[in-house]
Simulated assay, not measured.
Amino acid sequence: MTRSGRLYRDKIAAFALLALIALFAAILNNRPQAILSGDFNVVDGDSLMRNGERLRLLGIDAPEYRQQCERDGAAFPCGQQARALLVKLLQGGSAECRGNDRDGYNRLLVTCRMKGADLNGEMVRRGMAASFGSYRSEENEARVAQAGMWAGSFERPQEFRREQEAQRAQGSDPLKKAVDFIRHLAGWD
């Protein structure tokens, strides 16, 4: 076989292999979309529960329930306000949440709609959630309007969670606790 013949054969084999990989990817990615409708329990500004199923609003990141933000030099409970807004948005109708992927905590990632409105986007537009891969234009609207968290200063929810986790990890170190106790007794803190 000539060199050009082998090259042609190798190109065909590579194309066939790529086509086979694409077919497998399409089969694996063709999961049925879950559609949940009705009443939901609000956990926080971006998490819901329904019949024991945990749901996470896709593309947004709301403050953690215990997270504080700052407005006009004073702290305000932005995490509690984010939850309250989601409760309010879900009142007075039947929401429909759709999704087919799960996050690292096995929560179904969903986009929720009610009366034609995208609730995920509405949380961001009203400044009670940040864009997290989607809803960038809604976040820009909230910034310009200084809505919700954008009326003051706040720590991005993912940064807040990272710091909380670091503090929990640090607080569970028995050696550090003993050293801190001795420092306190000696008046070195």
Rank of each mutant, 00 (worst) to 15 (best):
L18Y: 03
I35F: 12
G187K: 00
V42H: 02
R56H: 10
D180W: 14
R6M: 12
S37W: 04
Q68T: 11
P157A: 00
Q33L: 08
A22G: 12
L55W: 09
I182F: 14
A74I: 08
S4A: 14
V179R: 02
G104T: 14
K176N: 01
R9E: 15
R54C: 08
P157K: 00
N106R: 07
M49H: 13
S131T: 09
I21M: 10
N100T: 13
E139Q: 09
I27Y: 10
L58N: 05
L119C: 05
Q80E: 15
Q33G: 06
N100A: 06
P157I: 03
A142C: 11
F76M: 01
R66Q: 11
S131M: 03
V179F: 09
R50L: 05
A22F: 14
G79P: 04
S4P: 10
G59L: 01
G152P: 13
D118P: 05
C112A: 13
R113T: 13
L119V: 07
R50P: 11
G171D: 15
E141Y: 13
G121M: 01
R83V: 14
K177G: 02
L23P: 06
A142F: 10
R113D: 14
L58F: 11
I12Y: 12
S94C: 06
I21V: 15
G133H: 01
G99P: 02
Q80W: 08
N30V: 05
G148T: 03
S131Y: 03
L17P: 02
E165G: 13
S137L: 13
I27S: 05
I27W: 05
G5M: 07
F15V: 10
G5V: 08
R183V: 14
T2E: 09
T2P: 10
G93K: 01
D189K: 02
L86R: 00
N140V: 14
Q33T: 14
G5L: 09
D101P: 06
E70F: 03
I12G: 08
N30E: 10
G59K: 00
G104D: 13
A147H: 04
A169V: 10
G152Q: 00
D189W: 03
E53F: 08
R98H: 06
A26D: 11
Q33V: 15
A178Y: 05
K177H: 03
E163Q: 14
A186T: 08
A16L: 14
A82M: 03
C69V: 04
I35V: 15
E64M: 02
L55H: 06
A147I: 08
G93D: 04
L175H: 02
G45N: 04
K177A: 14
Y135E: 03
R168E: 12
F132N: 03
D46G: 15
D173H: 02
P174G: 02
R136F: 14
C112N: 05
T111D: 13
E53K: 06
L55C: 11
R66D: 13
A22L: 09
A13C: 07
L36A: 07
G99I: 13
R66I: 12
L36S: 01
D180Y: 10
G116D: 03
A22K: 01
A82R: 00
Q146V: 04
Q167H: 11
G45F: 07
G52Y: 09
A62N: 04
M114F: 07
L55Y: 12
E122W: 01
A26W: 12
C112W: 03
G133N: 04
L85N: 04
V87F: 04
A117Q: 13
D118Y: 05
L23H: 10
C69F: 02
S94H: 06
G127M: 02
